[in-house]
Amino acid sequence: MGAGHGHRLHFHGHSPVHRAPAHVKVLTLLGFMLVVVATPREAYAVLAAEAAVLLGVVLLSRVPLTYLLPRMVVELPFVVFAVLMPFISHGPRTEVLGITVSEPGLVAGVALLIKGSIGVLGALTLAATTEPQDLLRGLQRLRMPELLVQIMGFMIRYLDVVTAELGRMMTALRSRGCDPRSPRHWPVLARSLGALFIRSYERGERVHLAMLSRGYDGKLP
C-alpha cells in the first residue's frame, strides 16, 4: 500500500542485479532491447547470443525461472499474431509440416516471437528486481520531468488502494448475482466504474488538501 512495499511482480532478493541502481537498469534494458530490435531477423546466432546474455542476467539475479516463465503470458495476444503472420503474408511459398506458408512471413513471425519473448523476459527481470520507489528515483535521475515523476509516484502509491476498492465492488456485485463479464450486466458495471471514478477523484482532492496542510508547494521533499 504505502511506500516501501513491494508490488505484485517484485521478487525480494539481494543479488547484484537487485542492488544495481534503478536508472542503470532502465538504461541498460532500453539499450539492450534497442540492439535486439535492430538485430537483423535472420541473424539467429546473434539473437541466441542476446538471449544467452539475458538468461545470464536472470541467473545472476537469482530470481527463479519458475517465477518468471508463468508471468510471460502477457505476450500471448502477440503470439497469436506471430503465428498468423506466415499465413497472411505473401512472397515465395515454403512448406512446413505439410502446410504451405509464406517464407518471409514465417521468418518475420519467428523473429517477432524471439524478440518479443526477450523483451517480455527482460522487462519481467527489471520488474522483479526493482522496487517501485527505487524506479521512481531512477527515473528522476534520468531527468524525467518532476511533475511526471510525481504523477507516477501517486499512481504507484494508490494502485493497490484503488484496485482493492474495485475488487470489493466486484465482490459485492458477484454476491448479488451479477456477472461482471456478461454484456447483460454492463450497465451495472459501468455505474460501478462511474462510482470508482468519483471516489478516485475525491480521494485525489482529499490527498491534495492533506498535502497542502503539510506545506506542499508543488515539490516533493
Binding site: 511533475l147 507516477m152 499512481m155 484503488v162 484496485t163 454484456p183 478516485s200 498535502m211
Partner: peptide, 29 residues
C-alpha cells in the same frame, strides 16, 4: 495540464491514472 488542474495536477492526475489502470483491468468478451 497545469491549466486544467493548476497545483492539484500531481495528486489528481495520479489518482485518475490509477482509475484508468483499474478500469483497464476489466475484460469484456
Amino acid at each position: 495540464a497545469r491549466r486544467e488542474l493548476d497545483d492539484r495536477t500531481a495528486p489528481m492526475a495520479g489518482l485518475v491514472a490509477t482509475f484508468v489502470f483499474a478500469a483497464q483491468m476489466i475484460n469484456f468478451p
